[in-house]
């Protein structure tokens, strides 16, 4: 006869040194968060994305051939931006209050899970979702651009032959035209652009996580995070405004405080230039990465400072 034991057995789990931050537990929490968000059917957005970009790609709305490529990339990146910002804020804002409301937080934190692990795990889940979604959208965009590229090259060469110079062309010039088309096509800088977008979304997620540790409702978290995102794009403007208006030391001080405390999100806006052919160097890309990671770490740290003492 087999007997089922409620609670007896060998090798109790507590022999594992669990007070350390455990990558396995982080992964367990991140994966659960990812699956939770995926089962909320967030990826339906991807279908909308593909439909939108296909429409832009198929429609002959643009006069210049290069503009067609630019349009595909712009709409793709615009949709990516929309997706990552909306999900970074709303998904992150949802997590903590819902866990608290459903008491899931009690069951998780009554296990040997340090609070910092819970925070990082949940954040990683959102970041994972963003990564998968961005990768999928980026891939779809690349396929479309690659598909359109030969036609655009052909159009540019035709233009060169019949239009701009008004006479015959040399191989050198045809190559120049092709290079011009390539400048608007796929490049490694596009990878940096999507990475910068991902970093920006990660910073926004970390900020939202921090706000959700203070806030009493998801709505407050969403509104406050949107405000931070808004102000985060105005760093240069804030500095310039005080320079222009010379509002005295008090105004200057407030401006500087805003600039110091709020993350500079416009720093990550390299997409615009990359789309129109400017390339981002490896060094600058690394620096951007460093800055993004710094922001994420900073806001996770302050979130932990609040959360570690939070009465649940």
């Amino acid at each position: 006869m087999t007997e089922t034991h409620a609670n007896a057995g060998t090798a109790p789990a507590h022999v594992v040194p669990v007070w350390e931050v455990s990558p396995i537990r982080l992964w367990v929490l991140a994966r659960a968060t990812f699956v939770q968000l995926v089962r909320m059917k967030v990826f339906y957005f991807l279908l909308i994305f593909v439909a939108l970009v296909l429409v832009v790609a198929a429609a002959g709305l643009f006069w210049l051939p290069t503009e067609h490529l630019i349009a595909i990339k712009r709409w793709s990146f615009g949709a990516m931006y929309l997706f990552t910002m909306v999900y970074s804020i709303s998904a992150t804002a949802l997590l903590l209050p819902r866990d608290l409301e459903d008491r899931t937080l009690y069951t998780i934190l009554s296990k040997p899970v340090p609070r910092i692990e819970y925070l990082i795990g949940r954040l990683c889940g959102v970041l994972l979702l963003n990564a998968v979604a961005l990768a999928a959208m980026f891939l779809a965009m690349c396929l479309l651009v690659a598909w359109k590229m030969p036609a655009v090259e052909q159009q540019l060469v035709q233009q060169l032959l019949h239009g701009a110079a008004g006479e015959a062309v040399s191989l050198n010039e045809v190559n120049q035209a092709k290079a011009e088309a390539a400048r608007y096509g796929l490049s490694t800088s596009l990878l940096w652009a999507v990475w910068a977008l991902y970093l920006k979304a990660s910073v926004v997620s970390a900020v939202t996580l921090f706000i959700s540790t203070i806030a009493s409702s998801s709505l407050f978290t969403i509104v406050s995070s949107a405000m931070v995102v808004f102000i985060g794009h105005f760093h240069q403007l804030i500095l310039d405004f005080w320079k222009v208006n010379e509002t005295g030391w008090f105004g200057g001080l407030i401006g500087r405080l805003l600039v110091i405390v709020f993350p500079n999100l416009s720093l990550f806006d390299v997409v615009d230039e990359v789309i129109t052919g400017t390339s981002l160097s490896f060094g600058a890309g690394l620096q951007l990465t460093g800055m993004g990671l710094f922001y994420v770490a900073l806001f996770v740290l302050v979130a932990q400072l609040v959360f570690v003492d939070k009465e649940l």
Partner: peptide, 23 residues
Amino acid sequence: ALQEVGVQGMMGALGGLRYMVST
């Protein structure tokens, strides 16, 4: 200076969406 502030304000307000708006 005002124009600069205007351009920046507009860009900031639209964030990453300004290219969609401009298209």
